[in-house]
Write a protein that binds this DNA or RNA. Structure first.
Lengths: 194, 194
DNA sequence: TAAAAACATGTAATTAATTACATGCTTTGA
DNA sequence: TCAAAGCATGTAATTAATTACATGTTTTTA
C-alpha cells in the first residue's frame, strides 16, 4: 500500500537557462507583468538577448513554483486581470548569486557569414567580395543603429550613471561593430579604381 | 477502405539548421565518417561552431534520406564497419546555394558576462572591477590560444592560400579578442598605484 | 600480453527556443 | 461609434542542441 510519500514534481530548471536571470534582474528593478517583460526584449534587452512571450509566461510560472517570484493580480477596467510579478527575497538572492559567479564561458560566435567564409577556399573565389560587401552594409547599418541608441538612451551623464552596465555594453557593442566594419573593409578590394 | 495513398514521412529539416551545411561543407572537401566529422569540431571548426556526435549521426541519416549524401561501408580489421559519407550532386548544389544566399542575420551575442553587466547599475558597484578583471584574463588567454593556432595552422603563405576563408575568420577572431581586451582594460581601474 | 586510449556508431532523455495557434479586453483615433 | 492598435495571457508543436546511456573494435603503449 503506497499512498502518500510526497508526490512532488522535481522542478528542475536547466543549468544554462540564462533567461530566468534576465527576468529576475528586470523584476529586481520594479514589479512587472509578463507583457512588460516581453516588451523589454523589444527595447533595451533585445540588443543582446531575445525571448518571446511564449517562453516568458511558462518561465514565470516555474519561477513562482520555485519560490523566486510571486504575483498580485490587479484589475484594469472591469475584466482585464494583470499579473504583477515581483521578486521574493530568495529570488533576489538567486540573482545576486548569479551575478557574483564567475563567467568563464567564451561566446560561441554562431555567425552564419563566418560559417560560410570557412568554405571559401581561395582568395580569388568570385563569391568572396560580394559576401564581404553585404556584410559591410549590414554591420554599418547596425553600427548606425547602435550609435542612435546611445544618443537617445544616454544623452546625458545622469543617464549613464543610473544604468552604467547598460552603457558599458552598448559602448562595447558599438566598438565591436566599428572594428568589424574596419576588418571587412581591409579585405574588400575596392572596385572603384580611377 | 483506405489503403495506400503514399505514406511518406515529410522529412522537413528545419530552416535554421546550419549544422547540416557544415557537414556538407566538410564532406565537400573529402569523404569522411561520422567520427571524422565529430573530430573536426574538436579542431578547426570548434573555434566557431560546436556539435557532438549525438547530433551528427542522426543528421547524417537525415541527409542521406533527403538525397544529399550517400555512404559506403569500408571494413577496418575484421569486424569494424566504417561508413564513409560523400556528397551527391544534389548535396553539392545545396551547399553552393547556401553559400550563395545572403546572410542578413546579425549575431546575437549571448555572452553571459555582458548579460550580467546589464544589471550592474552604478560605476562604483564593488562587483564591477572583479568582473572586468576576470574577463580580461579569460579573453587574454583566448587571444593567446588563437595566436598559437594561427602560427601552427597558417605558418606559410601556401597554407593561407589553400584555406583562405579559414584564415580570414581566424584573423577576424584574433582582432575581435584584441579589441575586447583593449575595451575591458579601458574600464579597468588599475589598483597598482604607487 | 594486458590495459588504456582511440576509433566507431548509435539511441534516449531533457531542455531551450522558435513559430504557430488561440483568446479576449482596453484604449485611441478616424 | 466603430475599427484598429495595443494590452494581456496563455498553450501546442516543433526543432536544435546537450548530456547521458549504450556498445563494441582496433591500435598503441607500458
Amino acid at each position: 500500500m503506497k499512498t502518500t510519500v510526497s508526490e512532488k514534481e522535481a522542478v528542475t530548471i536547466g543549468q544554462r537557462n540564462r533567461l530566468q536571470y534576465i527576468i529576475l534582474g528586470l523584476l529586481d528593478q520594479r514589479p512587472q507583468t509578463g507583457y512588460d517583460l516581453t516588451k523589454a526584449f523589444d527595447n533595451e534587452i533585445g540588443e543582446f538577448w531575445q525571448a518571446q512571450h511564449s517562453q516568458i509566461y511558462p518561465l514565470l510560472k516555474r519561477l513562482e513554483e520555485t519560490g523566486d517570484i510571486t504575483h498580485e493580480v490587479t484589475m484594469t477596467g472591469e475584466k482585464l486581470a494583470k499579473k504583477q510579478y515581483q521578486l521574493t527575497p530568495a529570488g533576489h538572492e538567486k540573482l545576486v548569486a548569479w551575478i557574483g559567479e564567475p563567467s568563464p564561458e567564451l561566446t560561441a560566435l554562431k555567425d552564419e557569414f563566418i560559417l560560410k567564409l570557412y568554405f571559401i577556399k581561395t582568395v580569388d573565389d568570385p563569391r568572396l567580395q560580394p559576401m564581404l560587401e553585404e556584410q559591410v552594409l549590414l554591420h554599418h547599418q547596425q553600427l548606425q543603429h547602435l550609435l542612435n541608441r546611445r544618443e537617445t538612451v544616454f544623452a546625458d551623464q545622469t543617464a549613464i550613471d543610473q544604468a552604467y552596465g547598460h552603457y558599458l555594453i552598448l559602448d562595447h557593442a558599438i566598438e565591436r561593430e566599428q572594428h568589424y566594419v574596419q576588418w571587412l573593409e581591409r579585405y574588400l578590394t575596392s572596385r572603384k579604381d580611377s
